Computed example of a mutant assay.
Amino acid sequence: MRQTKPMPATVQRWAEQRIGPVVAIRDASHDWYRSKVWELESSGARRWYAKVSPSEKFFTRETRAYRHVVPVLGHSRAPDLVDSRAEDLVLLLTAVPGAPAPGLALTTG
């Protein structure tokens, strides 16, 4: 069983400056010690994700992908990058319908 990770206050304040007051926070990290992801709920039941990258390399790679590759996929086919903050290696993403692939128990067929 993994330990629940609290969201850093600086990350929450930064996210709220972009999306407004947050009414609920849920740890959505993967079962990996460097995974730091939180699902945020703002007023009107809108959902977002704040993700702290494990390193500057991952942050740079993921930020570039969300800015330049994801828009080509089309609206609602992948999360949109709302904003990023290099000082905290954090990305703020929209939520999209669906389930994470690791939890789907997919087969090669």
Rank of each mutant, 00 (worst) to 15 (best):
S53K: 06
S35T: 06
R2L: 10
L93R: 02
T107W: 09
V52H: 08
T107I: 06
D27H: 09
S42Q: 04
T10L: 14
V90D: 01
P100R: 15
A24V: 08
L91Y: 00
A50H: 08
P54N: 08
I19R: 00
G109D: 14
D80P: 02
E16M: 07
W48F: 11
G98D: 01
R18W: 11
F59N: 04
A24R: 14
D31W: 12
H30M: 15
L106M: 11
G44M: 00
L106V: 10
L106R: 06
V37I: 15
P102I: 14
V37F: 01
A24P: 08
T94A: 01
P79G: 10
A78F: 03
F59P: 06
L106T: 08
A28P: 10
A15M: 03
P97T: 12
V37D: 02
T107V: 13
L106A: 11
H30A: 15
E87C: 07
D27F: 11
G44F: 06
L89D: 05
V96T: 03
E41T: 15
P102L: 13
A45F: 09
E39K: 14
L40A: 08
R13K: 11
K36P: 07
W38Y: 13
R2C: 08
E39N: 11
V11F: 00
S42V: 03
R13E: 13
T60A: 11
G98R: 02
A65W: 08
G103P: 07
L73G: 08
G20V: 04
P71V: 04
R47Q: 14
L92I: 04
A86W: 05
P71K: 04
W38C: 05
R2N: 07
A50G: 04
G44A: 07
S42K: 00
K5M: 12
R61Q: 10
A50E: 06
Y66Q: 03
V90N: 05
V23S: 13
D80M: 07
T10Y: 02
P71D: 00
A99Y: 12
E87W: 09
T60P: 00
R64F: 14
A86S: 07
P97Q: 00
S35W: 04
R2F: 12
R34V: 06
R85D: 14
K5S: 10
T94S: 08
Y49H: 09
L73Q: 04
P21I: 06
E56Q: 13
W14V: 00
V72R: 13
W32E: 10
